[in-house]
Nucleic acid binder design. Structure first.
Lengths: 399, 399
DNA sequence: CTGTTAGCGCCTTCAG
DNA sequence: CTGAAGGCGCTAACAG
């Protein structure tokens, strides 16, 4: 009934060998090898005692954990949770434990987690999701990131930080309205520095979606995908577009927007600057931006491209709430092909990104199991009922 | 530039005190205290050196990690990812690191992960999601779980298992069509035994959704929620129902089904057994069950209740694909109120479960921060356009 | 109140 | 090929 954890030395004793031999038999030491019969005896003893190694102890002795850190903005977001599923699968295959951090869009937390991963000597770390781009002056202070890290005072510390109970260990709430700049957030470049430090300390790194410095990254061909989408829609007869473009400074959003508008310009149907609307990268962002479009004078475009599916769904809701309908009054397209949204009605035209696969790729990359250091994943346009082919001679009202 | 991890002794030296004092100053030892000025000096030194403790070392010295294990069936499922978000938030506040396991519905993996958590001396573990109920004979073999655990041969081992590279560490693919019974899966009761062992070893446990033995659990009032829903729909004038009931043996599905049918029986509109259709707990399950309903002779019921939102959405898709429409031809209701599906059209009537909150509650429970050992979360009926009020004198065709 | 001294469980040089 | 011994970074008895 009672059962204090079985240790390696117990196994060794049970098998009648020394601790060292037991260790070698079980983990298959690199240099040394063990005679077959002894090895068998040890394994047998281990099995009998239901031994399994203590990860903390191994981590300490080896100077490296068996943990893979995964940092996402919000695990409840289907975009990230699908990536997480891919990472979880790949990590399990690699015998690694996934350590999850949902930063809730706080770059302080993101940074703190990277520091923690280094401290904890995680095997690798994967950062998913873009960061807002700051003013982006040259990183004046050079490499030295004075104090942006997880220090003992707890002010920038995250899970597992300083020992003082739970009372003061918590991360201060970031002022959620303050954009990433000025003195508030971590110094620009701090994340990159932390990641480099982690890497230099022997950890594997992979980013998803957006490169930072020269770090390994699984890029998503946002611009290309959006351009493909634009061409497909143009081919369907659409000519007047608007874009719900996400927030300024959001790299992913910007790439999708520019890919889309760029392709249209080439096709001779440029999108007027007024028809590119900045808005939050969320459902509500899509909703209100679309409402703005509806209410504004000048009539609706033929098609509205929201830079992600969640926004697109918000936009469709806005259309319905205004008593209009998709695609009769306005067509809508999104990006990502979120699986859970596959059945919205009308079916949402979008660009499919194999998110789970992206997670797996990132894991391989972080673990150094793939050749290069940069992989690009290209999406695939999926045309559905939200953007039907326009009848040849459809009226094309000009603004 | 280069920076080997700073250790406590370096901090101690820098501050001119002993290792022990530094430790006490930083973590605030329970019994001993440190003079204020020394304490300051230590903290100052730590800050200067950007020290932060090594979790593995602490874990080893203390005999307890700072990790919180979270086990879900599938992190890509919005149900679980929303719970995970709640857990992540609460864990961070408690200064714990979340360790994620997405079992992909394998009970072997679930079990292995619990064993691992014990071995690793995780602070607590949270298991979300129901398990299929096996034949459920009395647990014949008593408590001794002979070899269901993570043993060194790797056969039932999970992340971080035996050292042999990644080549053989993987868990054998479970035959996904074999129901949990017979000799295939882990012995019935093995999970409970493992959980008990974990708890006896000092770990905190919380289950979500479905009790196991007397372990702490956040229950979701599935039957009550479904009954509330049934009453609300009956009140809206519906009389003829069908239920897409999920798989046999699925406790959550069964509770929702029985709550729903039970309430209707009381109201004098019993659901015929033929109108309760077993099907997988997934989108496709809902889709095909609904298609079966549509194709079957005898006409459609007035309303179809799918035991979760994802199934309901699949069902709505089936209706559309058959050239029919919701709610004109048939009304549809679901359960959970998955946030991502908030904007499907027509809006899906459902029972809202505060999933993120459930995750937080479970964390508190697992950490022993809430009084009782059982919390029940009751859902709230949300009526939307998929189930409009039926006109008073609507025809009620009888089969 | 502070410093010294053992380990925690495991891996890894070193001898044998 | 095997065993003994040291140490990873930290905490927790013990002295002083």
């Amino acid at each position: 009934m009672s059962d204090a954890p079985v240790t390696l030395s117990q196994v060794a004793r049970e098998a009648g060998v020394s601790l060292a031999t037991a260790s070698r038999a079980i983990n298959g030491s690199a240099t040394r090898s063990v005679r077959e019969d002894l090895r068998e005896r040890v394994l047998e003893a281990a099995r009998r005692l239901a031994y399994s190694p203590d990860p903390s102890a191994q981590a300490m002795a080896r100077g490296r954990t068996t943990a893979l850190g995964l940092v996402v903005h919000d695990i409840a977001d289907p975009y990230f949770s699908t990536i997480a599923a891919g990472v979880a699968r790949a990590a399990e295959q690699a015998g690694l434990i996934v350590t999850l951090a949902s930063t809730e869009h706080s770059s302080e937390r993101e940074l703190a987690f990277v520091e923690l991963a280094r401290r904890q000597r995680s095997r690798a770390i994967i950062l998913a999701g873009g960061r807002l781009e700051p003013a982006e002056g040259p990183t004046a202070e050079g490499g030295a990131v004075a104090d942006g890290g997880a220090t003992v005072d707890g002010s920038a510390t995250v899970p597992g930080g300083s020992g003082v109970p739970a009372s003061d260990g918590r991360v201060p709430e970031p002022s959620s309205d303050a954009p990433a700049s000025g003195g508030a957030g971590p110094a620009p470049g701090a994340l990159e520095a932390a990641l480099n430090a982690f890497q230099e300390a022997g950890g594997g790194v992979a980013l998803i979606g957006q490169p930072i410095g020269g770090l390994p990254v699984v890029e998503i061909a946002n611009a290309d995908g959006a351009a493909d989408l634009a061409r497909a829609l143009h081919d369907h007869g659409y000519r007047r577009f608007a874009v719900l473009a996400g927030p300024a400074g959001h790299r992913t959003a910007a790439d999708r927007t520019s890919g889309f508008t760029g392709a249209l310009a080439e096709l001779g149907s440029p999108v007027a600057p007024d028809d590119v609307l900045a808005c939050p990268f969320t459902r509500d962002g899509g909703y209100s931006a679309m409402r703005g479009l509806i209410e504004r004078a000048g009539g609706l475009p033929e098609l509205v491209f929201a830079v992600n599916d969640v926004m697109a769904v918000g936009a469709m809701a806005a259309v319905r709430d205004a008593g209009l309908s998709v695609p009769e009054d306005v067509a809508v397209a999104g990006f990502d092909d979120i699986h859970t949204l596959r059945d919205v009605s009308p079916g949402l035209t979008t660009v499919r990104i194999p998110l789970a696969e992206v997670g797996e790729l990132a894991t391989d990359l972080a673990l150094g199991r793939s050749e290069g250091t940069r992989t690009a994943v290209r999406g695939e346009v999926v045309l559905r009922d939200s953007t039907p082919r326009r009848p040849a001679g459809a009226p094309t009202p000009d603004a």
